[in-house]
Design a protein around this nucleic acid. Structure first.
Length: 647
RNA sequence: GCUGGCGUAGCUCAACUGGUAGAGCAUCGGAUUUGUAAUCCGAAGGUUAAGGGUUCGAGUCCCCUCGCCAGCUCCA
């Protein structure tokens, strides 16, 4: 007996429909426009495809092409279409799995005899467009494991059979089909391939089955798709825009740093880049007293014994640079991290609970032998420095130390205008040191601290290092890649390995808790990401050159250099551009070099002792002000690290 | 490290199927002395990443090394 069911819509409205009504029926009921735009539905929050019967009373929202989620569904469906196209053109290809995150792109891995060439991609894209115009309907099918096995065995899809084995015994097995193509998939998918408005294949690369270097080599194809050609076009335009902000390009255009084949992965900082670097370091240094840090400096080279004690000699050996010292048999390692040296230093004195927490910060340059393929501009390098510090404290002081760390992080990111940070807590991996209970406590402490600090908190299951749960600040760049900036880790191993002790209030020896932490992370990486974040339009206080002074003609040069000297005496970084070029040319140069302030000096300014500053990106000069007032204002902006030259 | 792509002047890029390596910007010299996004004239600049091979002839085809880029893996 089929009675009507009641569907509650997001706006609170209720619809009564036939019991076997589907999501699509609801959309149609609401209006033909919605029915056309509808891609999927959410029943009680669960994402389902359009043809799913509702079954019972429920709350329902319709996902359309306009939703962010709608885009993901379109790309997911385009992914299947790509696999279909590949199978049509390369019948012997075996299909592995697609992508889980479709927020930007889609991908599939294939087992094929030959890698795909750019021409292959063009053919595949063309075939995809053929499939789209065929307008096939996506069907969802629930199968038993046996049926699914039979299906993929019949198709010769060995990889799929292996993937099928990953699905837990009690989970429902669903297959999505369109036309002749079928794949193991949770869905949901668009109703009809015609709802995929535009597709583009972006690149191909090699990969491994299950990411295992010893396993079969697969070929991966990446692409993206949108509801319309227009949306695809604006996405591609955005990528073009992002390319213009690429830190490698901006770094070169603004004369910040130089990368050279003679030192792969190791930046040469040019004077302007060095200014940026130094300003960032001073910024962090200036906060150290407030947060109770002391800065130290430890050696660059250590005898191997140090790293044997820390465990890096075994665990990190290939990532470090080793060589023989001048003494026979003396093996030296170039330091790749500060923690072993800090731990050793801590162990050299008798420590009292009274001096804890000890917070030691160090900006030393570190060297890691990164694998060549991982290098990337200055965001992934072999030579770098971190705003690194290690905290040794009593175990019951850990929580407040973490809170203080987040406060400092928030203060720094706020000043730099870095937003959109997501924190991720990594939990213990399969193999770990210490007791599970201790890990649980530590992980919980981190999660609580992240939430108290007001950051969004994600969990990365099993992603921690073997010795420590950690929190990472993930920053997404313009291309959607995630980069780790800040990190804090509770070390469960090093205090023991170095046999660290302090005398407690009770007169007994105790082992201190140890934290590793960095806020900017690697300065190299931070600078790279920050360049892309700002497009090179740095805040006033960070700009390598803050003011460019342009004398109109030779007779104004003297005044220009006077001004420069006056600014320099207040630590404002100014340059005079008195080249024999037109004023327009030099103004343009100041703009393209992203200099915050341009001062043109002509007869009026010389006579009256004034300046008429022109702000970066502004079409015209501001009202005239006295030179003294300018120097004073800029000096204050620097002292307060202001974003703009004038408050 | 792996898979794929790429490497021409300081930078951005040309050079048809193998047939004398070019341009713009930057640089240097000269002229111009400018009022808020590109003044004019001239000069110089390259063993086409390095090495080897095929060919009458290689920037172009082949091999190898190095580097860069995208992705994988790893990671700050």
């Amino acid at each position: 007996m089929s009675n009507g069911i009641t569907v509650t819509l997001p706006d609170g409205k209720e619809l009564v429909l036939d019991a076997n009504a589907t999501v699509f029926d609801v959309a149609s009921e609401i209006g033909p426009g919605l029915a056309k735009a509808a891609l999927a539905g959410r029943i009680e929050g669960e994402l389902v495809d359009l043809r799913r019967p509702l079954g019972a009373d429920c709350s329902l929202s319709i996902v359309t092409t306009k939703d962010e989620l709608g885009g993901s569904i379109i790309r997911h469906s385009a992914e299947h279409v790509m696999a279909d196209a590949v199978k049509r053109l390369f019948p012997s290809a075996q299909v592995d799995a697609g992508r889980t995150d479709h927020s930007e792109k889609f991908q599939y891995d294939f087992l094929v005899d030959e890698p795909f060439t750019p021409e292959d991609l063009e053919r595949i894209e063309k075939e995809m467009n053929n499939i789209l115009s065929e307008g096939a309907v996506f069907d969802r099918e629930v199968m038993t494991r046996d049926q699914a096995e039979e299906l993929f065995r019949g198709l010769g899809e060995e990889l799929k059979l292996s993937r099928l084995g990953d699905i837990p015994a009690d989970a429902e097995i669903t297959i999505f089909r369109h036309g002749k193509f079928a794949d193991l998939c949770r869905g949901p998918h668009v109703h009809n391939t015609k709802q995929i408005g535009a597709v583009k294949l972006t690149e191909a690369s090699g990969t491994y089955f299950r990411g295992d270097e010893n396993g079969p080599k697969l070929q991966r194809i990446y692409g993206t798709a949108f509801e319309s050609k227009k949306a695809l076009k604006s996405y591609l335009a955005r990528l073009e825009e992002a390319k213009k902000r690429d830190h490698r390009r901006v770094g070169q255009d603004l004369g910040l740093f130089h990368m050279d084949p003679l030192a792969p992965g190791s930046p040469f900082y040019l004077p302007k880049g060095m200014t940026l670097y130094n300003e960032l370091v001073s910024f962090v240094q200036d906060l150290y007293p407030k947060y109770g840090y002391d800065e130290i400096l430890t050696p660059q080279l250590f005898r191997a014994d140090l790293f044997k004690t820390s465990g890096h000699y075994d665990k990190f050996h290939d990532d470090m640079y080793w060589f023989e010292g001048s003494d026979v048999g003396e093996e030296l390692g170039v330091k790749a991290m500060n923690c072993p040296g800090h731990c050793h230093l801590f162990s050299t004195g008798k420590r009292s609970y009274r001096e804890l927490p000890v917070r030691w910060a160090e900006f030393s340059r570190l060297h890691r032998n990164e694998r060549s393929g991982t290098l990337n501009g200055i965001t992934r390098v072999r030579s770098f420095a971190q705003d690194d510090a290690h905290i040794y404290c009593e175990p019951d002081q850990v929580a407040q130390e973490i809170d203080s760390f987040f406060k400092m992080t928030a203060e720094i990111y706020d000043k730099l205008g870095v937003d959109g940070i997501e924190m991720a807590v990594s939990t213990r991996p399969d193999e770990f040191l210490g007791e599970p209970e201790d890990w649980d406590v530590a992980e919980k402490a981190l999660i609580d601290a992240v939430e108290r600090a007001g950051f969004k908190c994600n969990i990365k299951e099993g992603d921690a290092a073997f010795y420590a749960p950690k929190v990472e600040a993930d920053f997404r760049d313009v291309l959607g890649r995630a980069w780790t900036l800040a990190t804090i880790q509770i070390d469960m191993a090093m205090p023991g390995r170095f046999d660290l002790r302090y005398v407690g209030r009770d007169g007994e020896l105790h082992q201190p808790a140890m934290l590793h932490r960095a806020i900017l992370g690697s300065l190299e990486r931070f600078i790279g990401i920050y360049i892309e974040h700002t497009g090179g339009d740095f805040p006033f206080w960070l700009s390598p050159i803050q003011v460019v002074i342009l004398p109109i003609s030779d007779r104004h040069q003297e005044r220009a250099y006077e001004l420069k000297a006056a600014l320099a005496s207040k630590r404002v970084r100014a340059e005079v551009d008195d080249r024999s070029e037109t004023l327009g040319f030099r103004v343009r140069e100041g703009q393209t070099q992203k200099i915050p302030l341009t001062l043109v000096i002509g007869d009026d300014e010389v006579e009256r002792g004034t300046v008429s500053p022109r702000l970066r990106k502004s079409k015209q000069a501001m009202d005239a002000m006295s030179a003294e007032a300018l120097v004073e204002a800029l000096s204050i902006s620097n002292a307060e690290r202001r974003k703009s030259p004038f408050a």
